[in-house]
Amino acid sequence: MSSSNQSKRKKITDSNLLLTITIVVFFLMYIGAILFQGKGFLKPQTFFNILNANAALLILSCGMSLVMITGGIDISVGGVTALVSMCCAVYLDFHDGNVLGAVAIALAIGLAFGIVQGFLVAYLDIQPFIVSLAGMFFARGMTTIVNTNPFNVANPEFVAMKDTRIVVPGMGSINKLGKYVNAYVEIGVIVAILVVIVLFIILKWTRLGRYFYAVGGNSQSALMLGINVKRTKFLSHLICSFLAGIGGFVYFMHVGSGAASHAMGAEMNAIASSIIGGTMLTGGVGNIIGTFFGVLSLSTIQNIVSSAGLDQAWWTGITIAAMLCLFLVVQSVVMTRKNKK
């Protein structure tokens, strides 16, 4: 990041450039969707549905961005999500639990993964990818051990919570019968927005937040500046896994069931969203707002793919991978250009 400090007269830094690209891509894509796919995308509810379906992904991506800014990576978040939803489902249905207990379980699972993975990465200096790969397999395996068969949760308290809709004022639309319908979001979206705001504030205006950037940008010089690098890395993994716990519960609230196959490839989508949102894999560059738009871009493209009639399962995988590939290459080009200066 040193070069961006030097070139003060150049207003666009790498971080801003990547962020701008993301936001422009998202709006272009959405406008394109409106133009070519008909009026469905014009309705506010379409946009809110994208949010509803991807609230969990948004939370996971925020955690992922944080870890990536600090220079690590965590691919266990999808597995943790599945484990959390399975554990909560089993607790609610088989043990007559209450919702509060389920939330506690979700947070505890997230924290436990965070502490173990953070310790291994930060204090034992093991590659984060290996650690979280093992974490992912462990979580997936544990999900099957907890319960093999997928099932829907029937706990009334939980179902009431799952079906709670929060009306967005002034954003309704007129449905086919000519009736005015309010636009709504689920509770998960509120949680996700809160997470985005809190993380944005932490990263932007707190000392800890700047530590994350410093460690990710250059851990050697961060160490010389007197930053506790190990603790910062540990905290980044801890927060990421903790957010995976929250995201897991939000996911669980959206689907309302427990299954070993839940959130398959969610880690992949989270990484893709972060990268599309302008977070650099090399660390030190990134922005939560970018991640927010990254998630929106990713889910919009999924929506476009499915509403364009290309609903064979493989198209989604291929388009996401292609998009990810494109953004990775752009990042790499930006990096080489920066190094040459």
Binding site: W314, I318, A322
Partner: peptide, 27 residues
């Protein structure tokens, strides 16, 4: 090429094919 020329971490670079691979195979 992704790893060597674009200097992307191997595991992340191969993540692309990891996602798309089975879809391509089915395709």
């Amino acid at each position: 090429v992704l790893v060597a020329h674009f200097k992307i971490q191997p595991m992340v670079a191969t993540l692309i094919l990891y996602t798309a691979g089975r879809s391509i195979a089915a395709w």
